[in-house]
Design a protein around this nucleic acid. Structure first.
Lengths: 115, 115
DNA sequence: GCGGTTTATCGTCGAAATACGATGAGGAAG
DNA sequence: CTTCCTCATCGTATTTCGACGATAAACCGC
């Protein structure tokens, strides 16, 4: 059985602040926006991002219980989000705590805002 | 041959203003964000949106010249954007003028901002 | 009406995405 | 060391995407 993961409040470091220096438009920015948007372009991944934003949970197993998907599928989606740079995964014991990457999220908002 | 389409400045109506009343989160909002992001999640479509934002052009044939894609492929991308509600197509003569749908764009920004 | 121009749609093909179960890796607990 | 729990990865089937050429549809000018 799974334990409900009560240690969900503080599993990620404070968040590395810093400014995004890259341009908000141009061919590179276009590709970047397309890649980020593609990562967000799936219901399950949006829900994962939302759950992480609310910090109600951050462990893979919790997502499996909250989403109508198999564990391997959830892991795939987490991988996509991680490769897009939108989330980060910290190994803590047998579990893995995922957190939002605020930098990438800011970047996405900036790029979308530039439309 | 194609004429360079100099009548690009005023091919779209003023833009239907109005407020977006729908919620910014919840299952429906998740699906909506996923659908919009999926539409944006391609380099060619991002470039089309950028071109439309600058209003430098708005005719399908112009995109074909500016993108390394066949006419049918460009038309497909325009269709995806239109079905997502992000652009609108007005028929003017043998040409079709595409314009951004500001409402949908605002909606997208709001949904992304809610992350 | 007839040609010429522009755009959409159809059919097709290969590539990528999505889903699953099964299996493997790695730490915690005993 | 062994067992249990968690998660990632592999292999695979199905679906969807992205691209193209060819063709049809719509409109203007003559």
């Amino acid at each position: 059985m799974r334990k409900p993961a009560e240690d969900t409040a503080a599993c990620c470091p404070p968040a590395p602040e810093g400014t995004d220096l890259r341009p908000i438009e141009g061919p590179e920015a276009d590709d970047e926006l397309a890649a980020l948007a593609k990562a967000v372009g799936h219901e399950a991944r949006v829900r994962i991002l939302r759950l992480l934003a609310r910090r109600t949970t951050c462990v893979c197993g919790d997502f499996v219980e909250l989403l109508p998907l198999a564990q391997s599928t959830v892991s795939q989606h987490l991988k996509v989000l991680k490769e897009a740079g939108l989330i980060r995964g910290e190994v803590g014991g047998p579990r893995v705590c995922y957190c939002l990457e605020p930098r990438a999220l800011r970047r996405l908002k900036a790029l979308v805002g530039g439309l």
